[in-house]
């Protein structure tokens, strides 16, 4: 089984690396945002800079989870290669695992430029254990976004998936307080943000990276989003299977 997961991960990773535009998008965008927003406005304050660096890492992870995953899943479904893969002697698990591991790999790569910029151009400070905790928090809190990405990928044709994932991505990033701190935004945004998964993900990352006490409600919301997105992704997967392979 593990050799099959490895084979599928290798296959997915090669596809991503040979057409690196997706990888570029998920690493370039947070790096640019970092230079444009974080360095000039929060770079001088160690806590603000560290928090903002966590947010930007999360943005890169969200982009890989929501956009790259949904688009690659929906595009693969449209290829005649996909039914062939189902005739190979493996269940759906190795392929899923391959996708998730590849997406996590993309996230880890997208984190690097953000960390480099934070280290060179801001006053952000962090200890090694906190850094590892922060990166782990990014990976864990990206799970609901991966599930949403899978839901979109299995439920929609690729053209719709491209549009919908982008439409979701930016409002989620902004309302969640990842693009700029919630303190500078109107009060009602802060109220709404408690109910979006990106806020909860942010709280988790900020907490583990800086030690600042998190708000509880957004964390609960994050868990609920994970469960709902998991159910939705499973439903979309089964519906798609039922349509094409029953």
């Amino acid at each position: 089984m593990s050799s099959l997961i490895l084979a599928h991960t290798r296959y997915q990773a090669l596809e991503q690396l040979r057409v690196p535009i997706g990888l570029l998008a998920s690493s370039l965008f947070p790096a640019i945002s970092m230079l444009a927003f974080v360095v000039p406005f929060a770079g001088g304050d160690p806590l603000a800079a560290t928090t903002a660096t966590g947010s930007m890492m999360l943005i890169g992870a969200m982009s890989a989870a929501l956009m790259s995953l949904s688009i690659s899943v929906s595009q693969d479904r449209e290829q005649p290669w996909n039914p062939y893969l189902r005739t190979l002697p493996a269940g759906p698990f190795p392929r899923f695992a391959g996708r998730i591991l590849t997406t996590m790999g993309m996230m880890l790569i997208s984190v690097i430029p953000v960390l480099v910029i934070a280290g060179l151009f801001t006053e952000a400070t962090i200890t090694v254990p906190r850094l590892l905790l922060g990166v782990a928090a990014v990976l864990v809190s990206s799970i609901p976004f991966m599930l949403i990405g899978l839901f979109i990928g299995f439920a929609m044709p690729s053209k719709a998936a491209i549009a919908v994932s982008q439409i979701l991505f930016f409002p989620l990033a902004i309302v969640g307080g990842l693009m700029m701190p919630l303190q500078v935004m109107p009060a009602f945004v802060e109220t709404i943000s408690r109910f979006v998964p990106s806020r909860g993900a942010g709280e988790l990352v900020w907490w583990l990276a800086t030690g600042v006490e998190p708000k509880v409600l957004p964390l609960v919301t994050l868990v609920i989003w994970t469960l709902v997105a998991g159910a939705a992704a499973a439903w979309a997967y089964r519906r798609d299977e039922g349509r094409r392979f029953s």
């Binding site: 099959l4 084979a7 296959y11 090669l14 596809e15 040979r18 057409v19 005649p80 290669w81 002697p89």
Partner: peptide
């Protein structure tokens, strides 16, 4: 089973694809 050749993953090399299928 034979896949439709129009859907073969374009970015992989011939050897890599054979290895991937063989791994199953």
């Amino acid at each position: 089973v034979t896949p439709q050749e129009s859907g073969l993953p374009e970015v992989l090399r011939v050897g890599e694809l054979v290895d991937f299928v063989s791994a199953h």
